[in-house]
Simulated assay, not measured.
Amino acid sequence: MTPSDASGGAPSGAGDSRWSSLERPPLNAAALERALVVDGGLWSSVEVVAATGSTNTDLAARAAQLPEGAVLVAEEQSAGRGRLDRSWVAPARSGLFFSVLLKPGEGVPQERWGWLTLLAGVAAVTGLSRAAGVDTALKWPNDLLITVDGEERKTGGILAERVPGGGIVIGIGLNVTLTEDELPVPEAGSLLLAKAAVTDREPLLKAVLRSLERWYGDWRAAGGDPAASGLQEAYAANCVTLGRHVRADLPGGRTLTGTAEAVDADGRLVVRSAEDRHEAVGAGDVVHLRSVR
């Protein structure tokens, strides 16, 4: 990893086209740290690196030596990872690619830690909706959706991984200024394509981290209880999967088709099949279907 200049300016070798685009300026690490690392706050450090393979991998490797609240941001990722071993790659400085280290501690039973992925989703959509001026929604469990020309598209994703020492690293990837020609797949989108009012990455990153700090604080204060903290209700309100006809591709090659009706107390998606049976889905790939088949 090569850290970016602490002042936020271009590193040596600024002739490199990755760093010369005025439309995609580098993040100002010093300004982010001043804004986010405050007395009594959650965030303990903010590090910005020019490029790395995966911020989740890097932060996980150092988690045992770091305090809770460490934030690692990369201007570019070459081996970003999503759920089900999917890759996440985008042009340099075209999005937000960052990971945070959380250590809920003994005050939150470990069986409730699974809610942290969903919590990060709620924090992202609420923070982005305010800061970017564009509606953002959730597809269960952790996809961030926006609307581009009337079509639902994925603009971001979340990956949470447990690390040694009683912590969890949560990685968030968000497409900000990708153009149509730069999208990895036609189903992807970006805040720019959704005509967001703000595509400056610094206020967007600050908004998401501040929202994450608030939701995490409420959840931890409630002992990880998703109902008492308001998290379960907020997730349901922002999840466009609910009420939709879906297909869930489950581990072992099994497929479940039906209507997504709720998110239960364990964060699982409750699907009602055509036979009127209810099944809670905790893992798998969920596809939104356009109509009942």
Rank of each mutant, 00 (worst) to 15 (best):
L231D: 03
E213S: 13
W215R: 06
V263I: 15
K206T: 15
L231Q: 04
A237S: 14
A221W: 02
G224Y: 07
P203T: 12
G243Y: 13
Y235E: 09
Q232C: 05
S211N: 07
S229Y: 01
A236M: 14
E213L: 04
G252I: 12
T255Y: 09
V263F: 00
W215Y: 03
R220M: 11
G217M: 11
N238T: 09
H245A: 02
L204N: 04
R210V: 05
V246L: 01
G253Y: 08
L231G: 06
A222R: 08
S229F: 01
D264G: 07
P203D: 13
A260K: 05
V263K: 00
E233C: 00
S211I: 11
A228R: 15
V208S: 03
P203M: 14
Y216G: 02
A237I: 08
C239Q: 10
V240K: 06
E233G: 01
D249M: 12
L231K: 03
D249K: 11
P226Y: 00
C239K: 13
P251E: 15
P226C: 02
R247Y: 03
Y216Q: 02
R201F: 15
E261S: 14
S229A: 02
L242W: 10
A222G: 03
A236L: 05
L256S: 09
Y235W: 15
P226I: 01
T241H: 08
L242Y: 12
L256I: 08
L242C: 13
D249F: 13
V208L: 14
V246R: 00
D249R: 14
K206Y: 02
N238A: 15
D225P: 02
G224L: 04
V208C: 04
L204Y: 04
G224W: 06
A207W: 06
E213M: 06
E213A: 14
A260W: 09
Y235N: 11
C239W: 08
P203A: 13
L242K: 09
A207V: 12
Y216R: 03
V208I: 14
V240Q: 10
G223Q: 05
L231R: 04
A234H: 00
E202W: 14
L250G: 05
A237F: 07
W219Y: 13
A237N: 12
S211K: 10
A237P: 06
A236T: 09
G223Y: 11
P226L: 01
E261L: 15
V246W: 00
R214L: 11
D225T: 01
R254D: 15
L256F: 07
E261P: 02
G252T: 08
A234W: 00
S211L: 11
D249V: 15
